[in-house]
């Protein structure tokens, strides 16, 4: 299930892209979920563990993929117990956050109100209030009441 905490979190990684560069594992990159996320968000192809083909930048290293995708990969595969700041992700990452939350218990924190309006079947537990929201509208109503960012 997806759990969202607004504001600062204990064990938070505020800037996940930097953490990713220093901690990612090779096998994460070629996992089918990663391949799909890189294709969708970065419009790029995973050629191998250390090589991505970008339509804009040409052949790039794994460390040059977008900060949003790096954060998604950490959410999907990192088992350190850290909480990753999803404000490093654009709204185009929202559906993938929800998808990862369906595959595992995922806790994220947000320093802004992310826009989940394009995600169908949105459900999340808002940790600040203990309320489970079952739609984007319920999420937004709950989120704007919370002061922490």
């Amino acid at each position: 299930m997806l759990k969202i905490l607004f504001g600062e979190a204990e064990h938070e990684i505020y800037h996940p892209p930097t953490y990713f560069d220093n901690r990612y594992e090779d096998e994460w990159i070629t996992d089918s979920l990663t391949v799909e996320m890189i294709k969708d968000i970065d419009k790029s192809e995973v050629i191998g563990t250390h090589l991505i083909q970008s339509p804009v930048l040409g052949p790039i290293s794994t460390k040059e993929i977008s900060g949003g995708v790096k954060t998604l990969i950490l959410m999907a595969f990192d088992e350190s117990g850290r909480i990753f700041n999803a404000s490093a992700c654009g709204d185009n990452c929202a559906k993938w956050i929800v998808e990862i939350g369906k595959r595992k218990d995922l806790t994220i924190n947000l320093h802004h109100v992310m826009d989940f309006h394009e995600v169908p079947d949105f459900e999340a537990l808002i940790l600040n209030t203990g309320v489970t929201v079952h739609s984007y509208e319920e999420y937004l109503e709950e989120a704007v009441k919370i002061k922490e960012r």
Binding site: V56, L57, G68, G90, N92, C93
Partner: peptide, 11 residues
């Protein structure tokens, strides 16, 4: 400057 991921902000 904000917006979607992979639009080139960090670059």
């Amino acid at each position: 400057i904000r917006g979607d991921s992979a639009t080139g902000k960090t670059t």
